[in-house]
Structure formats: structure tokens, C-alpha cells
Simulated scan of single mutants.
Amino acid sequence: MIDVPTAALDSLYGLAFGDAFGDRWFGILRTQGPAALEARTLPPEPLWRWSDDTAQALILVRELVEGGGVVDQDRLALGFAAAYAEDTHRGYGASMHDVLRRIGAGEPWQEVVAGQFGGQGSWGNGAAMRA
């Protein structure tokens, strides 16, 4: 068991709850369009499922705790790849499927991510979600 400070756990619970709540609405937009949102129609599914943002936040917090507040970037990248391999259906962006598979297969993360989007790195907001 990892000893995580209470404030960090509270933050993670809030992140996971908000992430799962928000993720339910993406399905409504895809299937029913914006009118369902405007009418405040609740999603019918009983299951709330958190996304890749929470999955990767959990890995980051584990890394911070185990590293005494210091992030080992190699171990973090491998942790992200392992979490992805355990559950590939958490809403990862299209390019992240390739990135995390390649890191999990042993390619150096620095080379893999440097090649994304013509060498520009990620154009997503995942880092902001985990901050």
C-alpha cells in the first residue's frame, strides 16, 4: 500500500469523480447531439467510467510518492505504458495508442514522443489534466 497524503487522495477522488461524470456526457453528444445536453437529459448508463486522464494521474501520484516527490521520467513512462496495456479503452487519443504501445514494447520514450506531430510533441491537453 502506498502512503498518499490525504489532500492528494482527496484531489484524486475529485479528479476521478469529475472525469467519470464528464465522460458520460461524451456518449450523449455522439448519440443524441447537443439537444440532449440543452434539455439536461441524464445519461442512461448506470456505469461511470473514468478516463485515461485519471489513469495517468494515478500513475503520476504513485511516482511522486515512491520517488519522494521526485519524478523518475523513465519509470513514469513505463508506468503510463503499463496502465495503458491493462486497459486500452479509457479514451486515449489516437496518437497515444501508438506511443504507449511502443514504449511498452521497449522503445525509448524520448524518441517515441519526439517523433509525434512532426517533432512538435503532444498537441493534446493531457499534461494539463494531470497537473
Score class of each variant (00 low, 15 high):
R49N: 13
H97I: 01
I59R: 10
G106Q: 01
E38Y: 09
G68Y: 08
A81Y: 02
L37I: 02
R40C: 07
R30I: 10
E45H: 08
R30E: 15
A105M: 10
H89G: 11
H89M: 04
R62F: 07
L100F: 00
W109D: 09
G91A: 02
L60I: 09
Q116A: 10
A82Y: 05
L37W: 03
G104T: 00
A77R: 01
D72V: 02
T41E: 15
E38L: 10
L100A: 06
Q73N: 10
T54Q: 01
Q116Y: 06
F117C: 09
M96I: 00
V70A: 10
P44N: 01
V70N: 09
W48T: 13
R75T: 06
L60G: 14
A57P: 05
G106I: 02
G91E: 06
D52H: 10
L29Y: 15
A83P: 02
E111H: 07
E111P: 10
D74W: 07
G119H: 04
R40Y: 09
D98P: 01
T54C: 15
A55P: 14
A55W: 14
E63F: 11
A36Q: 07
R62Y: 06
E63H: 13
D72W: 05
L60M: 12
V71C: 05
R101N: 14
G104Q: 04
E107N: 03
G104L: 00
R30T: 07
L58C: 15
E107M: 03
D52G: 14
L58I: 11
R49T: 15
R75D: 12
Q73I: 05
D53V: 01
G67S: 11
P34H: 08
H89F: 04
G91S: 05
L42A: 14
H89S: 06
A39V: 00
W109F: 11
P34C: 07
G68W: 03
Y84W: 14
T54A: 12
A81I: 06
V112R: 01
A55T: 07
A77D: 13
R62M: 13
W50E: 10
D87Q: 04
E107W: 04
P108I: 00
W50H: 13
Q73E: 13
A36K: 02
L47A: 15
I103V: 05
V71I: 09
D87K: 01
R102P: 08
I28M: 13
G115S: 04
M96H: 03
G68F: 12
L64I: 02
A55S: 15
G93S: 06
W50N: 09
V61F: 09
E86I: 04
Y84L: 14
A39F: 02
Q73D: 09
V71D: 13
I28K: 01
W109R: 03
A83E: 14
A85L: 04
D72G: 13
D74V: 08
R30D: 15
A55N: 12
G33Q: 03
G104M: 02
D52M: 08
V99G: 01
G79T: 08
R90N: 11
Q56N: 15
G104E: 04
A105W: 00
G67L: 03
G106N: 06
G119T: 03
F80K: 00
G106S: 10
W50Q: 09
H89P: 02
L64Y: 06
W50R: 11
A39K: 01
W50Y: 15
